[in-house]
């Protein structure tokens, strides 16, 4: 098991505000890894840095063997096809219907026939638990939970090695949220995925995560299995996991 993501000494600044300082973490292949921490601790910022949406000001980051400090445009494009990203509210393209949203990467990056594209899209929709009948609907016509599922199907369409999930269960009812947890576990089983997620949902944390990092005070205060994390002495950790 070699790490799929390795962050060393990350420094992030917005103007004078330091968000991360001397931040270190690593994610192993095949594991479901959580980024946890209080609001405003920079979890989402860190995830954006991992997917090349935002620059960090110091340190080094390695994702799937690509060094993000000296990545070329061509290599970056290659890397972007190896991961899938699910945004908090799905971030579906509102001018495309669900089918075209999911099929977009296939049409852009491959020359697969439309018949096989239809097979792949239908399969991905089935895996994430999306009814086949929503294909022709537009994002504004479906519910928030369905948008997330469609966003997940779109993230999975190129069979990525690595999946990023930003608060996958937020805004879902408890039943759908637990279904989503089961779905995440099933996906890992099926696709040999490594998954990194930002989450606040305690049930989801207990049910899915193999390892996690707690971000607090601009750095990682604890990293490892949940049991190891709970044993760490930190105000946020004791409050967060209280009674668990």
């Amino acid at each position: 098991m070699y790490p799929v993501i390795e962050a060393k000494n990350i420094l992030t600044r917005f103007g004078d505000t330091v968000v991360h300082r001397h931040l270190n973490l690593h994610v192993n292949r095949g594991e479901i890894y959580g980024l946890l921490g209080p609001s405003g601790c920079g979890k989402t910022t860190l995830m954006k840095e991992m997917v090349l949406l935002q620059r960090y000001q110091g340190g080094s980051m390695n994702v799937l063997g690509y060094d993000l400090n000296k990545i070329t445009h061509k290599k970056a494009q290659e890397l972007r096809q190896k991961w899938g990203v699910l945004f908090q509210f799905g971030a579906l393209y509102s001018s495309l219907n669900i089918y075209d949203n999911i099929a977009l990467s296939l049409r852009e990056y491959t020359t697969i026939s439309e018949a096989l594209i239809a097979e792949i899209v239908s399969y991905k929709m089935d895996i994430v638990g999306l009814e086949q009948c929503v294909k022709e609907q537009y994002p504004s016509q479906i519910s928030g939970g369905m948008k997330k599922k469609a966003g997940l199907a779109r993230a999975l369409v190129m069979d990525p090695e690595l999946l990023f999930l930003d608060e996958p269960t937020s805004g879902l009812d408890p039943i759908s949220a637990r279904e989503f947890d089961a779905l995440i576990l099933r996906l890992r089983e099926h696709f040999d995925l490594s998954i990194v997620m930002v989450t606040h949902d305690l049930d989801s944390i207990e049910a899915t995560l193999d390892r996690a990092a707690i971000l607090d005070n601009k750095r990682v205060v604890a990293e490892g299995s949940l049991d190891a994390i709970k044993a760490t002495d930190n105000l946020f950790i004791t409050t967060f996991f209280k009674g668990r």
Binding site: N97, D100, A118, E119, V121, Y123, Q132, K135, E136, H190
Partner: peptide, 20 residues
């Protein structure tokens, strides 16, 4: 084994595929 797992998953279907 790994390929068989993926193939099995694809063969277990109870949906109607199709394009738009």
């Amino acid at each position: 084994d790994n390929q068989q797992k993926i193939i099995d998953a694809v063969y277990q279907r109870d949906y109607q595929s199709g394009g738009v």
